[in-house]
Computed example of a mutant assay.
Amino acid sequence: MFNRTARRTTIVASGLALTLGLAACSSDSSEATDEDAPRLENGDLTNLSIGIHSGWDEGIAVSHLFKVMLEEEGYTVEAEVADPGIVYTSVAGGDYDVNFDMWLPATHADYLEQYGEDLEQLGVWYDDAKLTIAVNEDSPATSLADLAENADAYGNRLVGIEAGAGLTRITEDEVIPTYELEGMDYVISSTPTMLAELKGATDAGENVAVTLWRPHWAYDEYPIRDLEDPEGALGDAEEIHTVGRTGFAEDYPTVASWIAAFTLTDEQLFSLENLMFNENEGTQNDESAAQWLEENPDFVEDLKAAAEG
């Protein structure tokens, strides 16, 4: 399981989020066990709580997308941010109703093993989550296998992110020795620095090679592509699952059907993340989700049709 410290960290501290989250969600959990709790005409409970992994952009984006969608349908939605371990503990314990960001089969396997009996698997919405080495789309290398012989074209540099990130470790321990990239200068920096170099190079029409991951808004913002990884040094692609507390589908039959039918293409997800975290800098997440829905006016109706079909 790789360390995701490279992800966005300008989010509410997890300790504060846990305190607020458990206080805010305790009434929701008790309501979910009350047969007399108010329900919407579609049979769902009116209140719903979402646990969000701190720093995981795709989960933040999808959580706020659902929050806005559900509020427009008449639900009252609470969204709280915490570390993944806290989120899974809270979903399994009924303090949060749902989480949209369980990476399987590898990244969150330990959490699934620990809490799986108290979680409902509700659906898979993305199936190409992976670590990557990305380059500008018009550069010469097409594969990690030929990056070494094209190193001069990239200034003999591979730009990385934080030293403590799992992606950094895997690049050092697996990618570089597997593809004999020791002759390149592996620049360990930070995610903002890597993105700044990516922007500068693509704006200037220069070649660049960076460590990256999918999903990420950079794929929507910059003309880049992934290098092929024929030896599998970066690991296999993973799926992103949605999980709920025990009894979720019974308490939210309509929402459960929407979640089961919910998927996002690369284009949809990258554009949502780009709007939320690049253009709006992660400061107006509900507003960003609402704007994205306005720009994709058929999305909700298409989702409902898919759920009914």
Rank of each mutant, 00 (worst) to 15 (best):
L48F: 07
R214F: 10
G94W: 00
A24Y: 09
S288P: 13
E35D: 15
E206C: 04
G205A: 08
V62C: 06
L16Q: 14
T19V: 11
D302A: 12
M184H: 07
I161L: 06
F299I: 01
G183V: 02
L158E: 06
N296E: 09
L293T: 05
Y219N: 08
D226I: 03
A148T: 12
E273H: 06
A290G: 09
L227P: 04
N278F: 15
I86H: 02
W258C: 00
A260C: 04
S30H: 13
M1K: 15
L40Y: 07
V255D: 01
W217Q: 06
G183M: 06
A153L: 01
R157S: 14
V210M: 09
D203H: 13
N156A: 07
D97S: 07
D138Y: 05
S49T: 07
Q284R: 12
T171D: 11
D36C: 11
D118W: 08
D185V: 07
V135Y: 01
L104G: 04
T19H: 13
I188G: 02
A201L: 03
V187N: 14
L195Y: 15
R39P: 05
M1W: 13
T191L: 11
D302V: 11
L303Y: 05
P84Y: 05
T265R: 08
N156L: 05
L22I: 12
A307S: 12
A201V: 02
Q284F: 13
G55V: 04
V255P: 00
W217L: 11
L158K: 01
D95C: 15
S190D: 10
G282Q: 06
A134G: 10
T46L: 10
S49K: 01
S63R: 02
S143A: 06
